[in-house]
């Protein structure tokens, strides 16, 4: 299973093996990553699973949808060029080793 590392705002790191096919948000919530809320259940409606993707990896992802782009304008913590909604990132072999940084706030 691909592993994904979550960098918490307090500097701590958590790394988990996450099954292919689920979203990064679902993988985070299932492993109890407190900094991801995922309130709408992955429907790209709430922007509470905001992450900053490691800069060298962001370009290798499929481009974001217009919905995701719009929602990122409404995140609780500032949007940055490497902002994504983790419910829109599917876990595949290709994202193995991904490092995502969690914002200060989701709500």
């Amino acid at each position: 299973m691909p592993n994904i590392t979550f960098l918490n705002p307090d500097g701590s790191r958590q790394t988990f093996d996450i099954a292919e096919g689920v979203s990064v948000m679902q993988g985070a919530v299932a492993n109890g990553v407190g900094g991801i809320v995922g309130e709408c259940g992955g429907n790209a409606m709430c922007a509470t699973c905001h992450v900053y993707v490691d800069g060298s990896q962001v370009a290798s992802f499929p481009p974001m949808s217009a919905d995701e782009d719009a929602l990122l304008d409404g995140t609780a913590s500032d949007r940055k060029p490497n902002s994504r909604l983790s419910c829109q990132i599917r876990v595949t072999e290709a994202v193995g080793g991904l490092v995502v940084e969690l914002p200060e706030r989701q709500i």
Binding site: A44, A47, A66, D67, A70, L71, D73, G74
Partner: peptide, 8 residues
């Protein structure tokens, strides 16, 4: 189908 209006 206009999430930007909703978010803003």
């Amino acid at each position: 189908n206009w999430p930007a209006d909703h978010v803003v």
